[in-house]
Write a protein that binds this DNA or RNA. Sequence first.
DNA 1: TTGAGTAGTTGACTTAACTCAATTATTCGC
DNA 2: GCGAATAATTGAGTTAAGTCAACTACTCAA
Lengths: 249, 249
Amino acid sequence: MVIPHSAESRYTKPVLVAVNKPLDEEDGLEKLRSHALFRSLKAHDLDHLIQQSRRLRLGHHQLLYRQDRPAHHFFFVISGRLRLYRLDSSGIDRTLDSIAPGDCFAEVMIYADPPRYACYAEALKSSEVLMIPVKAYQELLNQHPEYAQAALRHYAMRAVTRFHDLEIMTVQSARDRLIRYLIDLLPNGGQESGEVELPLPKCLVASRLAMQPETFSRILADLKANGLVRVNRSKLFISDPQRLIAISQ
Amino acid sequence: MVIPHSAESRYTKPVLVAVNKPLDEEDGLEKLRSHALFRSLKAHDLDHLIQQSRRLRLGHHQLLYRQDRPAHHFFFVISGRLRLYRLDSSGIDRTLDSIAPGDCFAEVMIYADPPRYACYAEALKSSEVLMIPVKAYQELLNQHPEYAQAALRHYAMRAVTRFHDLEIMTVQSARDRLIRYLIDLLPNGGQESGEVELPLPKCLVASRLAMQPETFSRILADLKANGLVRVNRSKLFISDPQRLIAISQ
DNA sequence: TTGAGTAGTTGACTTAACTCAATTATTCGC
DNA sequence: GCGAATAATTGAGTTAAGTCAACTACTCAA
């Protein structure tokens, strides 16, 4: 599936707009402080890191960075939502992840010299991110090696998350992949009923799950017809996750 | 697909056999020294770590560790080959990775308390591994925080590798997933022709690529009939990777 | 508020991949 | 080296999911 807007953004230089207002509590400073990567940092060190960072505003569908370009920064999402995707030689767009406020991201091929981004990152709606220089963070780690522990744990966890994503994708039927994807969106891993919001537009969830939008739509319609989910735009109410899990086998 | 031997090993306590012979140059000590996680270590520190580790021999299909069990060790492969897989509630076995001599592994859910393995690990043939206590490695990092840099890079790279694996799995056609998998096995990323050896038996490569063994066999037969690959047991000769890439779009 | 463009749905038809079954190779322990 | 067990291949029939097309429902920007 070729997504028009991303094919277009491929040829658009990202013009990044800085926001000069400093980060305040309402802007997610609290979320930043409590992020796994930063919560072990002394206030003074975190402040210094923030001072070396820039706050950016991204418009709807605006490109933040490109696959294979040198990666001098990583990012913290203040507001909005982004998606990570890769393009292959035929221009097919594969959505691989979505990023919510409070997340920190940038898949970087760290052994390349210079390190390069492993994917494109694009805002799904108007968003704000904090652009943190890798160098500044590395200097901080050099000065305070005890901080590296948190970074190590963060990356180890990320590797396991991707490993889990990979497991879902080895499920052969489109229907079962979708069910497992929905269950994973539920807070307690499907122990109790709940409402989930799709982190991506439906056509991109379909891309993420290696199926056509039509197939996604039909599977969801079928689950709805069987009383397994109630659908309201991008919000899905799952009344009985266990029943959903049961039919996926 | 339920793989008989793994369903069986599920109920078999892994009886790990220690090898008392110390690691020597022929046993992959050189490979261990040059591994990304260890090459920055001073000889003395690495020796101490090895002394705290145990060398294990694994028989064909022997289970090394189980998903969700406490993870007190990680592993370095001296010889043989292992696979990582997960089992779901219906007993379906999903092969997610294979591990070769010289690799270091253990996907660990590090935020769990205690940390737990994120998958099963099993020897594909008789193998030897070095079982390294996580505690010993962590103590080493505490004493020499500069070593954490290497670990951080290793995990960051692992996350990117899994991200790339995920990308392949978002390819919708079984044929194209197989082609991309083969291209990735080639040394230069498909720039030049070469022979690749499947790191897993064909039925497990099929599982890894979310297809049936029959489908795998038919696709390979078709590629062979079109002169795109020459097949000799688990060795495949790919004479023109670019042509293979071209037909996968 | 309107209209253009994108996203989502549904139907009809086609095809890739699955399933089941039978047969042939391989592997590995004895 | 033999024989049982597992892995791989091939055929035939079925089905899930893709494709193409038409239509509807949003969204966003002028």
